[in-house]
Simulated scan of single mutants.
Amino acid sequence: MSTLAPIGIFDSGYGGLTVFRSIADKLPDYNYIYLGDNARSPYGDHSFETIYKYTLECVEWLFNQGCPLVILACNTASAKALRTIQQKDLPAKHPGKRVLGVIRPTAEVINNFTESKEVGVMGTRGTINSKSYLLEINKFFPDLKVYQQSCPMWVPLIENNEHLQPGADFFINEYCNELLKQSDEIDCILLACTHYPLLMPKLKAFLPDHINILTQGEIVANSLADYLQRHPEIETTLGKGGQKVFYTSGDTTVFDGHASIFFGEELKSSRM
């Protein structure tokens, strides 16, 4: 696999496939390996130490498949593991490799989507409790007011394919209301979990029309394209051919059955 030099895409489960879809659409010529750690998902309620351990194991597995660059297409992993991997593990063990996340690219552009300068962030408990978005957005736009809301029921609803059923309405409406109670000036809501784009039909029904609902796929894809332009030392190591290979740490039949909902096409995975 090393001769293919694929880009690695990692997520704790299925949600990263929504980001992968946008990346593959934006940069179709590159080779990719997707890894979903479904056997140990969801990551949202795990400790920092556990998420760091799991994420590093999966990143190093992708390195061993020949990936010089890995994208953490998972907000929880980006919030709780990315910085340590970048600052500690890469210099010590993998100095020629790179690992990028999804939080910084989003924080860099969120100001473009708000007029009131008040934005909401909806994510898993792990992402929200890490305060990573508060810190990153404040670095770029200290004048923005950021309000957060954890949505612990949304990922289970999506992964059980219940998210568009009437039974999901209570939890979708509840979390939206809890966020909007914090300020009536919020005009942009970031979906800080890669599962949440699948809720878009419901969210548009429950949220006021003037609120921009921001998903991460296109933002991350544009950021990656820019990164590769600015870093030819990485870009030139990448193979091209448009190959997409999928792996899961869980059951491949279960993964394949759910993954098409997120990726938008049928796929066949292998066990890592």
Rank of each mutant, 00 (worst) to 15 (best):
D256Y: 01
R230E: 10
Y227T: 01
S223N: 07
F255W: 11
F255R: 07
Q243D: 14
T252V: 13
A225W: 04
Q229L: 12
L224G: 02
T215I: 11
I213R: 12
D226P: 00
G257H: 09
V245W: 04
V220E: 04
Y227C: 01
Q216F: 07
L238W: 08
D256W: 12
N222Y: 11
G250M: 07
L238C: 02
V220C: 08
Y247D: 09
D251E: 05
I213A: 07
K240D: 06
V245E: 13
K244T: 15
V254Y: 12
I213S: 10
P232E: 08
H258Q: 09
G239V: 00
Q243A: 06
Y227P: 01
I261T: 12
S223R: 05
Q216H: 03
I219W: 06
G242M: 00
S249P: 13
L214S: 06
K244E: 05
K240V: 12
L214P: 02
L228R: 07
D226E: 12
G241E: 09
I213L: 12
D256C: 04
Q216W: 06
A259E: 03
A259D: 01
V254A: 08
L214Q: 11
P232R: 02
T253F: 13
H258N: 15
V245P: 09
H258C: 14
G239A: 07
T252Y: 06
I261V: 13
D226G: 09
K244S: 12
F246W: 10
T237N: 12
Q216R: 06
I213V: 00
L228D: 09
D251V: 03
I219M: 07
Y227K: 03
G250A: 08
I219E: 14
G241C: 10
Y247P: 01
L214H: 02
D256G: 04
Q229T: 15
Q216I: 10
S260W: 12
I213Y: 00
G217H: 03
F255T: 00
A259Q: 05
I234R: 01
A221V: 04
G250Y: 02
T236P: 11
L214A: 12
R230D: 14
A225N: 14
L238H: 05
T236H: 13
V245I: 13
G257S: 11
E233H: 03
L224M: 09
E218Q: 08
I261P: 05
T215G: 01
D251A: 00
D256T: 03
T252C: 15
D226V: 08
T253K: 14
D256V: 08
E235A: 15
Q216A: 01
Y227L: 00
F246K: 02
A259L: 00
S249G: 02
D226H: 04
T252D: 04
L224F: 02
T253M: 10
T236G: 14
L214M: 10
V245G: 04
D256A: 10
Q216V: 15
G217Y: 00
S249H: 04
E235T: 15
L238I: 10
E233V: 00
Y227N: 08
V254K: 11
D256L: 02
H258S: 07
L228I: 05
R230F: 03
Y227V: 01
N222E: 08
H258K: 14
